[in-house]
């Protein structure tokens, strides 16, 4: 296509939007609300997911050894565990460290308590490995593996938490995908409607164009421009809006409820929007293009 033709199509596309302003605005509005919701879900989901990961990584499994096990055997068990892909971190906690930790958490005056016991560690035989997993849903299977290892006396894990967290994650994921897909379909439908009205309004002009010898793509181009522009405007607005709102909410929450920060940290707006902005633009322009492309193909056959 020539530059002058492309420019002409572009101007005609803008003209279409102006001539058909109410419907164009309705289409922009639907895409805005669709992508706003999409962005909102994304912000919540990503933060939720990162919070879950923080919680998941803090869910640990402890492995205790049989009495009188040698240090070589403990190292051997450690090596066997390390070979597994699910393992995120593996830390050795010696009996002394365990006792120190226990004393610190239990007694008002841990120094005195530790002195009282002297060298006689009440938690002798309590050396352990503390393991965190990359994916909590694999926990049950992994615990089975640990229990099968020679020299392992017992494995302690929190089954309930692990199961419910991974289930919640899955449900939230499916529900958001479902809502977003429905909204996308509604957007495509509305763009298609807007374009159809545009085509109907310009029916005579299109007929003349074709009789004069306009190629199909030349007839379609202004409508594609119209759809893409609607999609573009419809995606820029919610991204800008969300960026502003997200930043404000985070600042407010962090300032007001400082305690939340100790539980989990929000993902910074810049990091979040470096993904959300291009994805939203792509979706907006994509549905604009798809909606107008399908509609013109249906209505503008030679």
């Amino acid at each position: 296509m020539r530059i002058s033709s492309a420019w002409y199509s572009f101007k005609q596309g803008i003209k279409n939007i102006r001539r058909n302003l109410i419907f164009s605005l309705a289409s922009v509005g639907t895409i805005v609300s669709c992508l706003f919701l999409f962005g909102l879900f994304y912000c919540i989901l990503v933060n939720f997911d990162s919070a879950m990961q923080e919680i998941e990584s803090s869910i640990s499994i402890s492995v205790f050894f049989e009495d009188g096990i040698s240090e070589e055997n403990i190292t051997l068990i450690g090596e066997q565990i390390r070979t597994r892909d699910e393992v995120n971190t593996l830390d050795f906690v010696s009996a002394d460290e365990a006792w120190e930790k226990f004393a610190n958490e239990t007694y008002d005056d841990p120094e005195a308590a530790m002195e009282a016991f002297g060298d006689d560690n009440p938690l002798a035989n309590s050396a352990s490995y503390t393991i965190t997993l990359k994916d909590v849903s694999k926990q049950a299977e992994f615990v089975n593996f640990l229990q099968g290892l020679a020299g392992v006396r017992s494995v302690k894990s929190s089954e309930y938490t692990a199961d419910s967290i991974s289930a919640l994650n899955t449900i939230v994921g499916y529900v958001s995908i479902g809502i977003i897909v429905i909204l996308l379909l509604v957007s495509i439908f509305l763009i298609s409607n807007t374009i159809t009205i545009g085509i109907t309004v310009r029916k005579d002009e299109i007929a003349i164009m074709k009789l004069i010898g306009a190629t199909n793509y030349f007839v379609r181009a202004p409508f594609i421009v119209e759809g893409v522009l609607i999609g573009l405007v419809g995606s820029v607005i919610p991204v800008a809006l969300l960026y502003y709102i997200y930043d404000m909410v985070i600042n407010y929450v962090v300032g007001r409820f400082a305690i939340l920060q100790s539980l989990f940290s929000f993902i910074p707006a810049n990091e979040l929007f470096s993904v959300l902005a291009p994805v939203s633009l792509l979706i907006g322009v994509g549905i604009g293009f798809l909606g107008s492309w399908l509609t013109t193909r249906k209505h503008l056959k030679v």
């Binding site: 002058s4 306009a214 030349f218």
Partner: peptide
């Protein structure tokens, strides 16, 4: 001009 535009005649 429209007749020329639609067959992509240079401006």
């Amino acid at each position: 001009a429209f007749a020329q535009r639609v067959i992509e005649t240079p401006t």
